[in-house]
Design a protein around this nucleic acid. Structure first.
Length: 356
DNA sequence: TATACGTGGTA
DNA sequence: TTACCAAGTAT
């Protein structure tokens, strides 16, 4: 019965030929290095966030060898603002591994997954989109589109990802994929998921697959993919104080975040917790300090909403607080430095700069 | 298997 | 404003 779907997927390709998103990484010829970088950049990130950084990244690191031979700090700087900074650290490991083994990417999804930062999705994307070989790159879009289309009522998460990926085990489905062209097929499904078969308010009226969509037939597009039963982690309020400690040159004091902390290897303004709903939070020391800014800058990280306040202080007075004793501190000209300063610290400083 | 990991946009 | 969403992976 899947056989009957072939014609339906031809409608998808026909739709795609009219509505194909001409994104900068969708070149005629694909360089696996570029595919890897774009796939990693796009993980859990919007296209709009990646767009302004994509070209400049490859001006700076044109080839895999260039990135492998670069200073890791330069990669970290190029990644600024993209979030999930571990991705950049894994990407650096990945290109070095591949560079040292001759510059060729491993063959097959299984071996590709041995590359740092490459999981089931990226391995399949390198194969299907990069190499145009038979694979199904099951990201959030494909999970949503295909679980609706085939009415796969498996709870969202790794189980659904596997269930959708297993469609490729079906000979008829695989044949269709091959017939359409793995790259074309995967990209068409992604475009459909992003623009039509959206998580909220899908535009089924404009969908080329509407005639044969099982979820639409039974009016279940709203409840597929099936939401997980477990309750969502609550957002926790956090009030931080950022200390502004200047030396005679007007540079500010920063410290480097360690392994196991948020924003590992980034420089941050000396920071203390003023208030926290999460009493066990160990990211910063607690401190009782008076007379800090009444204004605040709001930031967020994982499940914390952060209200950032600030306070100018002498270095000696700061030392008297007795917090962050054993840290790697340095004075930096924050707006000129080639060091990686955290987004939150920069936001506070930019705000103060604009006021001045 | 559940949780951690950033950030910006939208309803 | 809150809640959710966006081309996942590592542990």
């Amino acid at each position: 019965m899947l056989k009957n779907r072939v014609k339906e997927f031809e409608k998808l390709l026909s739709w795609s030929s009219e509505n194909y998103a001409h994104l900068p990484w969708r070149t005629e010829v694909r360089d696996l290095y570029r595919v890897l970088v774009s796939e990693v950049m796009l993980q859990q990130t919007t296209v709009a966030t990646v767009l302004p950084r994509y070209e400049s990244f490859f001006e700076q690191f044109p080839t895999l060898a260039d990135l492998a031979n670069a200073e890791e700090n330069d990669l970290a700087l190029a990644w600024k603002g993209l979030g999930y900074y571990r991705r950049a650290q894994n990407l650096y490991k990945a290109v070095n591994m591949i560079h040292q083994s001759g510059g060729e990417f491993p063959q097959g999804e299984e071996k590709l997954q041995q590359v740092p930062g490459v999981g089931p999705y990226t391995a399949a994307a390198l194969t299907a989109i990069g190499r145009n070989e038979l694979a199904l790159a099951v990201d959030g879009n494909l999970q949503r589109v295909l679980s609706r289309y085939f009415l796969i009522e498996v709870e969202q998460g790794p189980k659904l990802q596997k269930a959708v990926h297993s469609l490729i085990q079906n000979k008829s489905f695989a044949k269709t994929l091959e017939h359409c062209g793995p790259r074309k097929f995967n990209e068409a499904l992604m475009d459909l998921g992003r623009t039509i078969c959206k998580a909220r308010n899908p535009k089924c009226g404009e969908c080329p697959l509407a005639d044969s969509c099982e979820a639409l037939k039974v009016q279940k597009t709203d409840c597929i993919p099936v939401k997980t039963a477990k309750k969502k982690v609550a957002i926790s309020e956090l009030k931080l104080l950022r200390f502004l400690i200047k030396n005679k040159q007007g540079e500010l004091l920063f410290y480097k975040k360690r392994k196991g902390e948020w924003l590992k290897d980034q420089w941050e303004l000396p920071t203390a917790i003023i208030e926290s709903e999460d009493k066990d939070l160990k990211q910063y020391p607690f401190a009782e300090v008076a007379n800090y800014s009444s204004q605040q800058i709001t930031t967020a990280i994982t499940r914390y909403r952060i209200r950032n306040h600030w306070k100018a202080m002498d270095e000696l007075d700061f030392r008297d607080l007795g917090i962050l004793n054993d840290r790697d501190f340095t004075f930096l000209a924050w707006d000129k430095t080639q060091e990686h300063i955290s987004t939150a610290s920069e936001k506070v400083l930019n705000h103060l700069n604009e006021q001045a």
